[in-house]
Design a protein around this nucleic acid. Structure first.
Length: 703
DNA sequence: ACTCATCAGTAGTAT
DNA sequence: ACTACTGATGAGTAA
């Protein structure tokens, strides 16, 4: 599916409140050509396809160019590292002369650290080296892709996770059924061996983590001191296992992550081990976040692991505790992650990276239960991005609680009560603030008169809720598995070419998992005005990866019937083949038997697959929230074709799903999927529209 | 709201 | 090779 080439770009601009979204951009660039009009939209399918191919070639070339550039960057980086190596060599030599010795223990109550000369020297050296390794240097070309690498790693983790959730849900169901059968048998016969019904669910997060390790997909398998490229202050993690998967903090359990003796051989020779690199504060300091720059951290150990979790013995200066002490001695910085209770989210807890901290002092004291505990006063390094509350706003439920709290409110509910959840609109940009107008809100698809929707889906004969993929005929269409997991009210395991949902001809109830995208809005969405991109959409709730956000609703029309005179930026071509090629969201889509059949048909008919799709959704004058969602070159939503009432892929429903875990108030975007240079004006010249998505890898042009 | 078993990698030690 | 250590997680239970 491609958001179709805007039909003519007519001089008569639409009402500012309506289509202003992209028209305005052009006006701002002075690029708005006063051309008219009609006819140029379809330059013939063939020509368009050729243009597309050309564009793709061009893109490839550009990519190569970039790669070359990147190589160059790599080279200079290598040069740099060679230089630092020289410095290190020098240091090593010096060190050989001084001789490395075991350092004297420092007493427990160092009001003023008594540091021997040797230690002082060591500290100095360590600090020097740390400066180079800190990664606090300005981002370069290599750094740029680091963010994307992190994103990809997290997506991979999520994918594994959802697959394993699916597996677990299946196993638990089987276990329950087996147990039931066993119980029934017991009632009749008595003693029956317990089937493999290990009723309890395993931990899919840990399993996903293990999988990442086995496949060597962990982004940073080596621990390092200081910042991690691609993870900025304020970065949010959604579980401990996710941090392990990127290599940010390598324990899913322990609070303190430290480098052990084995790190004392390589580049970190001049440090003292164990040495802490990262810690997690688990929500204990939730209430005194104003003290965020200054933390008192309790060491590890001595806890009663079960029950009341009180201290049951003295902590000792070993392992993590010793590692933190060594950080104090050497002045090594530590990454600090905070865990936040997060009631508004499905994940329950989120973790934010709050930056580098230094151990200012440490001491031992008698804790509440009368046992020795170690305490570490940590101070945040200066010059880091301030810990704005916006990053943790949602953790406090700081999203507006009632309409009077909403700033810039221009409309309480643009859906006028149609959706399950009101969709407010806000405008802090225009003066006077205007509300989105010029269209009619509609929750469900309108169908043009000359289209008759088929209703030929066979439907499954399940009763109540579909649960057995072996018997549910809808599940069979999806490759003998349900495309969704139950968790969090239904999440799509993986982007597929087509998802076959249960529909009106099925025997199951509306709560069936295989109707996940049919249950309407689940999240509190807000339409808000932006300075450059017109209207945009964001969520007040946390949206987990794979969750359905909304369907693209409008007037279902024959492409040929579109009014080619007036400008229209709200056309959505229903072109599953495009979707199948994997635009936006996830790179490759899972294919299953029934889809390959459809594809085969299309392959036989090359012409059709290259041509303009027969049907499209026009949301210009009638539509739902989806029409306000902007394009981004690095989107957090992806398009998924869904079939439920019928099986005509040309008339598939178009549903937007979360590609990532999306924190509240982050703008929702998807890839409109234009090929560059694919849009032509009436004069045959390539039309250009600039992109303001702001992503790192932004192509700078929408088309 | 509270309880509880489980989960799995890491560091360090013993062999 | 083996073991101690660690506390998040989600299902189950009780209230």
């Amino acid at each position: 599916m491609v958001l179709q080439s805007p039909h003519s770009l007519q001089s008569s601009a639409p009402t500012p409140a309506n289509g202003a979204k992209r028209v305005k951009i052009q006006a701002e660039n002075g690029a708005a050509p006063k051309d008219n009009v009609a006819g140029q939209r379809r330059v013939s399918a063939r020509l368009q396809a050729a243009a597309k191919r050309k564009a793709e070639k061009k893109e490839l070339l550009a990519k190569r160019k970039l790669e070359l550039l990147g190589e160059d960057g790599g080279r200079s980086a290598r040069k740099l590292s060679a230089e630092t190596n020289k410095v290190k060599q020098k240091l090593k030599l010096q060190h050989a002369q001084t001789g490395i010795q075991q350092l004297p223990e420092i007493p427990f109550h160092p009001a003023e650290p008594k540091v021997s000369k040797k230690v002082a020297k060591m500290v100095e050296r360590a600090a020097k080296i740390a400066e180079g390794l800190d990664g606090t240097t300005t981002p370069n070309v290599a750094e740029k892709s680091a963010h994307i690498k992190v994103k990809e790693t997290v997506r991979l983790f999520n994918k594994h996770y959802l697959h394993l959730v699916q597996e677990e849900e299946k196993r638990c169901r089987a276990g329950k059924v087996a147990k039931k059968a066993a119980r029934a048998n017991k009632a009749r016969k008595g003693n029956v061996p317990d089937a493999d019904g290990k009723g309890r669910a395993k931990r899919p997060d840990l399993k996903a983590m293990t999988k990442m390790m086995e496949r060597k997909e962990v982004l940073y398998p080596q621990k390092r001191i200081g910042n991690i490229p691609g993870i900025d202050v304020g970065h949010q993690f959604y579980s401990r296992a996710e941090m392990v998967a990127v290599g940010f903090h390598s324990h899913w359990l322990s609070g303190i992550d430290y480098m052990g003796q084995s790190y004392g051989k390589g580049e970190y020779k001049h440090y003292k081990f164990p040495l802490a690199v990262a810690i997690v504060l688990s929500g204990m300091y939730e209430d005194d976040l104003d003290n965020a720059e200054d933390v008192v951290y309790t060491g590890e150990g001595g806890h009663a692991l079960t029950g009341n979790k009180r201290q049951i013995r003295d902590q000792v200066l070993k392992r993590g505790n010793l590692a933190l002490k060594n950080c104090y001695d050497l002045g090594v910085t530590i990454r600090v992650v905070r865990g936040h209770e997060c009631t508004s989210s499905y994940s329950g807890k989120i973790y934010t990276y709050d930056g580098l901290y230094k151990v200012e002092k440490y001491w031992a004291e008698k804790g509440l239960s009368g046992f020795t505990v170690f305490k570490y006063r940590l101070r945040r390094l200066e010059g880091q991005p301030t810990l704005t509350t916006s990053q943790v706003q949602f953790a406090h439920g700081r999203v507006p609680q009632c309409t009077s709290e909403i700033r810039g409110l221009v409309c309480e509910d643009i859906s006028g009560g149609q959706e399950n959840v009101p969709i407010p609109a806000t405008n802090m940009v225009d003066d006077p603030p205007v509300a989105p107008t010029g269209y009619e809100y509609c929750k469900s698809m309108k169908v043009a008169r000359n289209i008759e929707l088929p209703a030929n889906a066979a439907g499954c004969s399940c009763e109540g809720l579909c649960w057995d993929p072996k018997t549910c005929s809808c599940a069979k269409l999806n490759g003998s598995d349900f495309p969704y997991v139950h968790r969090d009210g239904g999440r799509l395991v993986e982007a597929k070419h087509v998802v076959f949902e249960c529909g009106p001809n099925c025997g199951c109830s509306p709560e069936c998992v295989n109707r996940t995208s049919q249950s309407g809005l689940k999240y509190r969405l807000e339409v808000f005005r932006t300075p450059k991109k017109g209207w945009a959409v964001r969520s007040w709730d946390f949206i987990p990866a794979g969750a359905p956000v909304c369907e693209y609703i409008g007037l279902l029309t024959r492409t040929e019937d579109l009014d080619s005179v007036s400008e229209n930026n709200y056309i959505f071509d229903i072109d599953c083949l495009q979707t199948m090629r994997g635009l936006g969201g996830r790179a490759s889509r899972q294919q299953d038997a029934s889809v390959s059949m459809i594809q085969k048909v299309d392959k036989n008919d090359e012409q059709r697959s290259e041509s303009v799709p027969e049907f499209c959704i026009d949301a210009a004058s009638i539509g739902n929230v989806a029409r306000f969602i902007n394009h981004s070159c690095e989107p957090n939503l992806f398009i998924q074709c869904v079939l439920s009432a019928h099986q005509d892929i040309k008339l598939a429903r178009v549903v937007l799903f979360a590609a990532d875990n999306i924190p509240p108030l982050q703008e929702l975007t998807y890839d409109y999927g234009y090929a560059l240079d694919s849009v032509h004006g009436p004069d045959g010249k390539v039309k250009v529209m600039l992109c303001f998505c702001g992503a790192e890898g932004c192509r700078k042009r929408l088309f």
